[in-house]
Computed example of a mutant assay.
Amino acid sequence: MSAQGKTGHLKRRIGPGLLTAYGVGVMVGAGIYVLVGTVAAQAGIYAPLAFLLAGLIAAPSALSYAELSTRIPEAAGEAAYVEAGTGSRALGLIVGLAIVAGGTVSAAAVLRGGAGYLTGFVDIPFNISVIGLGLMLLAVAIVGVLESLAMAAAFTVIEVIGLMLVVWAGWQAPVSPDFTAPAAPYFSGIGVAATLAFFAFIGFEDIVNMAEEVKRPERSLPIAIIASLLITTLLYVIVTLSAVRAVPLEDLAASERPLALVYEAGGGAVVVLSAIAVTAALNGVLAQVVMAARVLYGLGKRGGLLGLFRHAHPRFGTPVLATVLIGAVVIGAALVLPVSDLAGVTSTILLVVFTLVNGALILLKRQSPKAPFRVANWVPVVGLIFALLALMAFAFGAAS
C-alpha cells in the first residue's frame, strides 16, 4: 500500500441534505420500532409526552454540538471538544473511546432487533440473520461514505413511510379503552420513560463525527443537527400518540414488535411493517458503524496503538481497518446480549458524554466567545443539567 493509502485523508463528499437524512435515519433506526412498548409500560397513555420530554432533554446538547462542530470540525468530535475545553488529552481519549463503545453497543442492539423482525416473516435462524445482515452492512460501510449515506438516505425514506403507515393505521383502528378513559399521570413513571425514550434520539451526535467528509462543515453540520432533531421529535410524538390510541397499554407493553400491533389494529399486513422495521434497523446499524469507525480514525492521529486506525483506503477513502473492527464487535455483541441491556448501556454512556461535552463548551466560551455558529451561554449549562438529571432518573429507574 502506498504512503497515501496509509495516511490518506477522508474525502469531502457530503452536503447538508444527505447529512440531515443520515441524522434522521440513525435516530429513527435507533429504537422507535421497539421502544414504544417499553416507554408505554412506564408512562402509560402519556408515552407521547415522554418522547417529547426526551427530545427536550436532547435539544440543548444538540445545540451545544452544533456550535462545537463549527469550532472544531474533526472526525473524533467529542474527544476533540473535551480535550480542547479541559486541556486533558487523557479525558478526551476516554470520551472518544466511550463514543466508540456507545455507537458499537447501540448498533448491536438495533441489529438484534432488526434480526428479530426479519425472522418473524422469513424462516431463517436468528443467528444467521444477525451475521448475514451485519456482513452486508459492513461491506457497504467499507466501499465508501457517499455510498453508505446514499443507502442510509434511501433507508430513511422507507423508515419514514413506515412510520406514516403506523400513524394512518393507528387512527383507522378502534379507539383503545385506555385512551378514552386515561388514568391520572404518574410523573415519576413519565420521567423514567423519558430517559428510556432518550435512546431513540441517539444519532444527532453522530453527525459531528462526519465533519472531515462534509462540504462546508461550518454551515452543513449545524443545519443537519438541528433539522434532524426537530424532524424525529415530531415523528416520535405522532407515532406514539397513534400507538396508545389504537392498542391497549398492556398489549403494547408486552410486545417486542409494538408498531406491528398498531399496524395490524388498523387492518394492515404485519409483514409489510416488519419488512420496514428491518430496513430501519439496517439504517441504524450502518449509521453507527460508519460513525464509530470515523471516531477511531480521528483518535488515530493521537498516535500510540490507536495510530493503526488513522488509515484511509486509497480507493474507497474510508477507514477500512476501523470499520472492520467495529463491524465484527457489533455482530458479536448482537449475538449474545439482549436489547434492553444494550439500550441501557448506550443511554448511560451518552448521557455521561453529553455532560462532559456541555461542560467543555462552557469552558471554551469563556476562553474564546467567537465561533462560526454560536448558541446562547445558557444553552450548554441547561444541557449539562438536563444530562445529569436524566442520568439520575435512569439510575433511579434501574434501582426501582
Score class of each variant (00 low, 15 high):
residue 236 Y to D: 07
residue 84 A to G: 05
residue 280 A to V: 05
residue 204 F to S: 00
residue 391 L to E: 11
residue 130 V to Y: 04
residue 262 V to A: 06
residue 38 T to H: 10
residue 374 R to A: 11
residue 387 A to T: 11
residue 234 L to E: 03
residue 223 I to F: 15
residue 31 G to Y: 09
residue 322 A to N: 10
residue 256 E to N: 14
residue 338 P to Y: 01
residue 390 A to N: 10
residue 368 S to W: 02
residue 123 D to L: 12
residue 119 T to M: 08
residue 340 S to P: 12
residue 293 A to L: 08
residue 287 A to H: 02
residue 72 I to H: 15
residue 37 G to C: 08
residue 191 G to H: 06
residue 35 L to T: 13
residue 267 G to I: 08
residue 10 L to E: 10
residue 186 Y to A: 11
residue 27 M to V: 05
residue 261 L to S: 01
residue 248 P to R: 07
residue 192 V to M: 04
residue 220 S to G: 09
residue 58 A to V: 15
residue 97 L to C: 08
residue 235 L to A: 12
residue 125 P to W: 10
residue 299 L to F: 03
residue 329 V to R: 03
residue 65 Y to M: 06
residue 152 A to V: 15
residue 101 A to T: 15
residue 371 A to H: 11
residue 61 S to F: 05
residue 98 A to T: 11
residue 312 A to S: 11
residue 299 L to P: 01
residue 214 V to L: 10
residue 192 V to C: 02
residue 257 R to W: 05
residue 349 I to K: 13
residue 268 G to H: 10
residue 100 V to N: 07
residue 347 S to C: 02
residue 381 V to Q: 09
residue 171 W to Y: 15
residue 238 I to D: 03
residue 212 E to T: 03
residue 81 Y to Q: 03
residue 216 R to L: 10
residue 26 V to Q: 00
residue 169 A to S: 14
residue 185 P to K: 00
residue 28 V to C: 05
residue 111 L to T: 07
residue 101 A to P: 12
residue 306 L to D: 13
residue 378 W to Q: 10
residue 333 A to N: 05
residue 285 V to C: 03
residue 124 I to N: 05
residue 311 H to M: 15
residue 127 N to W: 15
residue 110 V to M: 00
residue 40 A to M: 06
residue 166 V to N: 05
residue 44 G to E: 05
residue 39 V to K: 00
residue 245 R to Q: 07
residue 350 L to A: 06
residue 387 A to N: 10
residue 336 V to F: 13
residue 37 G to K: 01
residue 74 E to G: 12
residue 160 V to D: 05
residue 234 L to C: 09
residue 62 A to G: 12
residue 282 L to P: 00
residue 166 V to Q: 03
residue 308 L to Q: 15
residue 240 T to S: 08
residue 9 H to E: 13
residue 39 V to G: 00
residue 42 Q to E: 15
residue 273 L to Q: 00
residue 121 F to S: 01
residue 282 L to S: 04
residue 12 R to Q: 13
residue 43 A to K: 02
residue 312 A to Q: 01
residue 325 L to W: 09
residue 392 M to F: 09
residue 283 N to Q: 06
residue 216 R to W: 06
residue 161 I to Y: 09
residue 53 L to E: 01
residue 196 L to E: 06
residue 64 S to H: 03
residue 369 P to R: 13
residue 319 P to I: 03
residue 305 L to S: 14
residue 343 A to R: 09
residue 137 L to G: 06
residue 44 G to S: 09
residue 91 L to Q: 04
residue 329 V to I: 15
residue 363 L to Y: 06
residue 62 A to H: 14
residue 320 V to N: 04
residue 220 S to N: 14
residue 110 V to E: 00
residue 374 R to C: 11
residue 225 I to N: 01
residue 333 A to H: 03
residue 322 A to D: 07
residue 176 S to P: 12
residue 3 A to L: 13
residue 344 G to H: 09
residue 292 A to F: 04
residue 74 E to Q: 15
residue 304 G to I: 13
residue 248 P to C: 09
residue 26 V to Y: 02
residue 18 L to T: 13
residue 192 V to F: 10
residue 308 L to V: 12
residue 390 A to F: 03
